[in-house]
């Protein structure tokens, strides 16, 4: 019922290469958990939600804490890159300010020094603050497995609360984001019970860029957190924005569609009804802000 005073017993193993991680995962199955920042893992262990026998520290594997940017290939963020590392990285700030903004919205500064992008995505909390940004930036997750590597699009990654497309013998190595389209702008808006630092009651990421092939002349993408079993894209809203010329009316209609895409639950933080209307309010606000930046 209540959390235990301290962490239960387990064995800590510091992994030195990816194959060792795969081997440990195969050997121990669900009894092994991977450690990057620990800000979620240790909390859940203390709460008694999980009780791994072995905790495998993967953040020292090659590339896990690296951020690489290439104009052609885009951004590669090691899974164990921390939120603060991400938020203050000059090329992330320049080319992916939306991602920096989302990373900076997580919890507190000291938590962000430990919390990682990979952890935030792999825990697959519906409230994960970086998920909407990664969704609208069309990120791909690089998974390591016994056969080597495979990539999964962020939109296919989240399968349920705490559930992902990752198989038992896989782990997340990196997140790849394509180069940002010319002239793009983004905004992450989050509603919590405190001004900053709380878990999201609703999180909305809006990302847009000019695109002559669309009737509206623009592509808008909308990612939502904390309002469905998984972080998700508001496809119908995006369709509205692709086909209607940008402006107050279109934004209102798109916000309505985003609200319809949300299927939230009542919980101790907020009611489903409030969450739904807040999706509408924040989406509209996000669209306005992004439109201002685009113009």
């Amino acid at each position: 019922m209540l959390a235990r005073p301290a962490l239960p017993s387990f064995d800590y193993v510091r992994a030195n290469n990816p194959d060792e991680v795969v081997r440990l995962l195969q050997e121990h199955g669900a009894a092994a958990k991977l450690l990057m920042g620990g800000t979620d893992l240790f909390v859940r262990m203390r709460d008694g939600v999980i009780r791994p026998q072995i905790v495998v520290d993967v953040k020292h594997l090659p590339g896990m804490r690296a951020i690489e940017y290439d104009e052609g290939a885009g951004l590669t963020v090691g899974a164990a890159v921390t939120m603060n590392q991400l938020a203050r990285h000059p090329q992330v700030q320049t080319h992916y300010p939306l991602l920096a903004e989302a990373a900076n919205s997580v919890a507190s500064y000291q938590v962000r020094n430990r919390a990682t992008l990979g952890g935030n995505l792999c825990n697959a909390s519906p409230a994960a603050d970086t998920a909407p940004a990664v969704l609208v930036l069309e990120g791909r997750l690089v998974l390591h497995n016994p056969q080597g590597e495979r990539e999964v699009a962020a939109r296919d990654f989240f399968t349920g609360p705490g559930q992902t497309a990752m198989r038992e013998n896989e782990f997340l190595k990196a997140v790849r984001l394509p180069p940002p389209p010319e002239g793009s702008a983004g905004k992450y808006l989050k509603l919590g019970r405190n001004k900053v630092g709380d878990l999201s009651i609703v999180g909305v990421a809006v990302f847009a860029f000019p695109d002559g092939t669309k009737p509206s002349g623009y592509v808008f993408r909308i990612g939502l957190a904390s309002v469905a079993p998984v972080p998700l894209r508001a496809w119908e809203a995006e369709e509205v924005l692709a086909t209607h010329s940008p402006g107050e009316e279109t934004f209102a209609l798109a916000a309505e569609k985003a609200m319809e895409a949300a299927t939230p639950i009542d919980d101790v933080r907020a009611s489903a009804a409030y969450r739904k209307v807040m999706v509408r309010a924040l989406t509209r606000r996000g669209l306005e802000r992004v439109w201002e930046a685009l113009e």
Binding site: R193, V196, G197, V268
Partner: peptide, 9 residues
Amino acid sequence: DYRIATAAD
């Protein structure tokens, strides 16, 4: 989930 005022609030 029992939130108290922070420095930002």
